[in-house]
């Protein structure tokens, strides 16, 4: 399964902010770690803000804070803000054939599993997985590219 770039950026931003409950991070802080342009990140943050998952903090040292519930917000909640994960629907003459229907049935099975997987992982659980990766020695290489 491949997620769109905006979706991946949103997940990374939420994970960064959820790791610092009560503290804010700037778009530049997050962008530097993941090598993401501030322009693209700002657009993503607007969507997260409208969804109530982050709040903006104005003024010097301002930025964004996580405002969701890390134990209740799932990856699916974030993903669905940026892309549709609906089960395949017949939308062509070919799909209406028995062969097309059989294929739609299998693709729907895959979609259902993907949705269940993303819906079962909360942000808090993802943070635990991140911690496990860090304990295993996976460290962030901060992007050297200047923005």
């Amino acid at each position: 399964m491949k997620l769109q770039i905006s979706t991946r950026i949103a997940i990374f931003a939420v994970l960064e902010l959820a790791a610092r409950e009560g503290h804010q991070l700037s778009v530049a802080d997050i962008g530097e770690k993941y090598d993401i342009s501030s322009h693209h990140l700002a657009k993503v943050m607007n969507v997260l803000h409208r969804a109530g998952l982050v709040r903006s903090v104005r003024g010097a040292g301002g930025g964004y804070q996580f405002s969701g519930n890390a134990r209740r917000t799932t990856l699916l909640d974030v993903v669905q803000l940026f892309e549709e994960l609906t089960s395949a629907e017949p939308d062509s003459v070919a799909d209406a054939t028995p062969e097309g229907q059989a294929l739609v049935q299998i693709l729907s099975e895959i979609d259902d599993i993907a949705r269940a997987t993303l819906g079962s992982i909360t942000i808090a659980t993802m943070r635990k997985l991140v911690d496990r990766q860090e304990a295993a020695g996976i460290r962030t290489k901060v992007a050297k590219k200047s923005r």
């Binding site: 799932t74 259902d112 269940a116 079962s120 992982i121 909360t122 659980t125 496990r132």
Partner: peptide
């Protein structure tokens, strides 16, 4: 069950993976 989100989320939070 795939649609039993609370139990799924619980077991995931305890470190269980597919």
């Amino acid at each position: 069950a795939r649609d039993s989100m609370l139990p799924l989320q619980f077991f995931r939070s305890e470190g269980m993976m597919a």
